[in-house]
Amino acid sequence: MPAVSFDHVSRHFGAVKAVDDVILDIAEGEFFAMLGPSGSGKTTCLRLIAGFERPTAGDIRIFGEPVADLPPYKRQVNTVFQDYALFPHLNVRDNVAYGLMIAGRGKRERHAEAEAALEMVRLGGYGSRKPSELSGGQRQRVALARALVNKPRVLLLDEPLGALDLKLREQMQEELKTLQRQLGITFVFVTHDQGEALSMADRVAVFNEGRIIQVGSPEDIYFRPEVPFVADFVGSSNVLPEALVARLAGETCPAAIRPERLRLTSEGPLKARVTGLSFLGLSTRVSFDAEGTRLTALLPQDVARPREGDEVALSWAAEDLHLMRAGQRANPRAGA
C-alpha cells in the first residue's frame, strides 16, 4: 500500500490551476522529492497532504485512508515548515513537546521524549533556550525534532534547507538522509534545488505548471529526461531542437545532451562558435552558438580551452544523445 496516493487530484484557486490532475504514488519508507520552479504546484501538493488545502477534485489517500474530510490535526503526518514556525513564546523543549502536550501526555514523559528528540538532532541541552536565541541551522533542527517526536508515518518538509547557507545545507542534506534511513519514515521533500533533490531523494517528481511531468529515480531524471523542460530544469541539459536532431540522428523529436558529455573536436557533426567562457573551478563552462541553438559544455581543466569567437566542432558518444520521443512518457505510477 502506498504511503500517499494522489488520484487525479486538482487544486484550483479561481482560474489558477495550482495543482492540476496529479496522479502519484509515494511508497512507504521512500525519500520522495517534489522538484519544480516556484509556482509549479509542489508546495500546494505538500499542503494537500498535510491538510492545509482541500482538493477541488480527486482523491488523496494516506496509507489507504481517504483524507478528504480529515483536518490537519487528525492526520498522521507532520510538517517541517519553510520558516520553521517555532512557537516564539515557548522554549525549545516545550516547542518539541507541543504535539505530545496536545496528545495529553504527562509533563515528565513528554519532556523526556522531547529531550531524546533533541539529542537525535544533536541539540541535547538546548531545551531551555528560546527559539530567538538559536541560529538558523539550530532552529531547523528544532523544527525537525518537533515533527519527528510525534512519530508521524509521513514527514513533510517544505524547502527546509532554503534559508541555510551552502555549507550548512550540504551538512543537513546528509543528516536528513541518514535520519530518514534510520527511522524508516516516509519523507516527502519539496525543493526548487535540483542538486538537493537529486542527491537526497530515492525518487523525484518534477513539477511544472501544476502538473507532474516526470517521476523517476535521480538517474532517470538526470540522464533520461522525457521532455525538454526536465532536461533544461534539472541540471541545465542542452536541448537540441527537432530539426537539428533530424539531421544528426535521423529522428524528428527533441533531444538532450548533458554539458559534461559534449566534446570539442577538430572534426565533428556539429559546427559551433564559442560565445563565452567561465571558470568554475573543477571545470570550465563554455557557451556555444551552434547553428542558432545555444549550447553549453563543461570542459575538464586538463583539456585545452578554446577562446571566445573560435569556430569549433562538437561531438559526443552516440548513447549520450538522449532522444525525447513523444509518447515515451512513462506512467507516473510506474516504478513506485
Partner: peptide, 28 residues
C-alpha cells in the same frame, strides 16, 4: 509580526482550533 504558519504548525501537531487559540494564538 506573528508568523502565519504558527497556526498551521499547531494544527499540524494535532491541536484543534480551540487548542490552537489557547496554546498559540492567545499567548502570542
Amino acid at each position: 509580526r506573528t508568523s502565519g504558519s504558527l497556526i498551521e504548525a499547531s494544527m499540524d501537531l494535532g491541536a484543534n482550533l480551540f487548542q490552537t487559540l489557547r496554546h498559540v494564538i492567545l499567548p502570542n
